[in-house]
Write a protein that binds this DNA or RNA. Structure first.
Lengths: 191, 191
DNA sequence: TTCTCCATGTAAGAAGTTACATGATTGC
DNA sequence: GCAATCATGTAACTTCTTACATGGAGAA
């Protein structure tokens, strides 16, 4: 269900083609929700059949067309309803924690190396999230700019801060994980 | 794949029946990896066919039997190999972040309420993880005790600390998320 | 003309969810 | 005798992954 709501949230900012959305879910929002191309196209058609979005065929050259989807009033209602409801937390399913829980079964050096790579990944992810947070605060991303054209200018700063805060959270969690992993490396080698 | 490795990790501590594992993945390890009964039984049979575990039928009363699975040498090798290899990070897929990213689309009070429930969940999850961390440090869980019977007593403290550290990490992340959500509540209402 | 990007699909399979179903055994 | 627990399954469905497949348009 969440992919559908993620798509609605993005299309609410700007109507887009499937191709645009594929790019988007590989990059920016990729830090929040990842989805491959083979999942996005069928989902868009299902959402259109369900009346949540409607597709508009634009000509691109003499033969090619692209289908630009926008959120219908019904889709808008569904999105607002979903956003306003607390949902059960997703069941925990982090392969890395399964790995860490069994580090006592392997050599200290090997566990140390696995943690090293994990730390690098988390730091990189935190850096990227913070960079994106700053771009949002500066209202310097395409999607935010387009979203703001439809909102009261008095709200622009508040909206930018809210979006930025989500990426600040992603970064904070990644830093916490990295620090935890460093502590784990110390535990592996001590005494 | 990860469910299989999670199962191997648990069975390495103690051979268990499918029923035991169902209980286990609903509770303790539920904070690390959750799996329903309908997934566990077929997975065990697939793993047995693959030679990773072997099932031993124990009689329970005159008619009933339970199948106790234990890790084969091949399963042990596979587990060690997987544990020693760094893996690509799991694609981000957190429905709550999708929700938070669109809080500007709904009423402040509604977003505030959703955050309130999120904070309560995270604090609860942090409390539970910390309680489990303490039980592990005190070597006071069934599974850890049984695991330690097969390990050099000189390593017992180190092993307990390593396991406990994983749950300390789960708790730290949950606290970070809760603090982030409180900051989000302040952002919603300010100015 | 060839390469990159635009644009959209399909198919097979693994993983996960929800719900239903059955029977034995133990303890009160 | 009855309830709770032990023990194991199946079926239908959604979601996600991996890989293959096709062709137009624009630029060098």
């Amino acid at each position: 269900m969440s992919l559908q709501h993620a798509l609605l949230g993005v299309l609410e900012a700007r109507p887009m083609s499937g191709y645009d959305l594929v790019q988007f879910f590989d990059s920016s929002t990729g830090w929040i929700w990842a989805a491959p191309q083979s999942q996005i196209y069928p989902t868009l058609r299902r959402m259109e059949r369900a009346g949540l979005i409607s597709g508009d065929d634009e000509p691109r050259g003499p033969k090619l067309t692209r289908t630009v989807y926008s959120v219908t009033p019904q889709g808008r209602t569904e999105l607002e309803q979903w956003l306003s409801t607390p949902h059960d937390p997703a069941p925990p399913r982090d392969p890395f924690l399964v790995q860490a829980l069994n580090f006592d079964e392997i050599d200290v050096e090997k566990a140390h190396a696995v943690l090293e790579q994990f730390i690098a990944e988390q730091e990189k992810s935190a850096d990227e999230a913070e960079a994106h947070r700053d771009r949002l605060l500066a209202k310097d991303t395409m999607l935010l700019k387009e979203r703001l054209t439809r909102r009261d200018p008095a709200d622009h700063d508040r909206i930018a801060r809210l979006k930025a805060h989500v990426f600040a959270g992603v970064a904070a969690v990644a830093r916490t994980r990295a620090e935890w992993a460093r502590e784990g490396q110390r535990l592996l080698t001590e005494d």
